[in-house]
Simulated scan of single mutants.
Amino acid sequence: MARDDLHFRLRIPEDLKYRVERAARENHRSMTAEIVATLEEAYPAPADPEEAELEEILKRYSPETRRKIIKLIREGD
């Protein structure tokens, strides 16, 4: 993980922590790397650079505004 990666605390049930620890050991990586790999698999980055740019722009808006923008884009297709 890079030094400039986001850091935050995460509360998880104790049994889940043990499952993550076990998976990390089995995959020969740290718990952080195991969690990141699992999240990357569940939430893959968009393949299209334009889609990635649009996602960055949409992050600036509230969820309600994002839904309206997405609806307008879909109607235009």
Rank of each mutant, 00 (worst) to 15 (best):
E56D: 07
F8Y: 13
P46Q: 13
K71L: 03
R67T: 05
I12K: 05
N27L: 05
R9S: 12
A47H: 15
D77P: 01
K68D: 10
Y61G: 00
D5Q: 14
L54C: 03
P63C: 13
I69V: 00
E41C: 00
L54P: 01
F8T: 12
L58F: 01
G76D: 12
A45V: 07
P44N: 14
D77I: 11
A52P: 00
R67M: 07
N27C: 08
S30C: 03
R11E: 03
R67A: 13
A24S: 08
P44R: 13
L54K: 03
R19T: 08
E41G: 09
L58V: 02
A24L: 01
T38V: 10
M31C: 11
R60E: 15
P49C: 08
K68E: 11
A47W: 08
A37D: 11
R60W: 09
E51G: 07
R19I: 09
I12P: 00
R66P: 02
E53I: 06
L54N: 00
R11N: 04
D15T: 13
A47C: 07
R11Y: 05
E26N: 08
L72R: 13
P44L: 03
E53R: 15
F8C: 10
L6F: 14
Y43S: 02
E41W: 09
L72S: 12
V36L: 11
D15N: 10
D48Y: 06
E40G: 03
I12R: 04
L58P: 00
H28K: 15
E75K: 05
P13D: 14
T32N: 14
Y43R: 12
E14L: 06
P46V: 00
A47F: 06
D77S: 06
K17N: 14
I69T: 01
E21Y: 11
T32I: 10
Y18I: 13
L10E: 06
R74E: 15
L10N: 08
E41D: 15
P44D: 13
L39W: 15
G76T: 12
D48K: 02
N27D: 15
K59Y: 07
M31F: 02
A47D: 14
A2E: 07
K17F: 11
H7Y: 14
K71P: 01
K71Q: 09
Y61L: 06
E50Y: 05
P46R: 13
L39R: 07
I70C: 01
E51K: 06
R19H: 08
G76M: 11
H28Q: 14
I57Y: 09
P63F: 08
P49H: 15
I57T: 09
L54R: 03
E40D: 15
D15G: 06
A2T: 05
F8I: 01
A33S: 05
Y61M: 10
I12E: 04
N27S: 13
K59I: 07
L10S: 06
L54F: 04
E55V: 07
D48W: 04
N27P: 03
T32C: 07
D4A: 11
E41M: 07
D77M: 08
G76L: 12
E51Y: 03
R66L: 04
I35T: 13
R66G: 02
I57Q: 13
P63E: 15
R22W: 07
R19L: 09
R9I: 00
A52F: 01
L58Q: 03
G76H: 10
P13L: 11
E34C: 02
L58D: 00
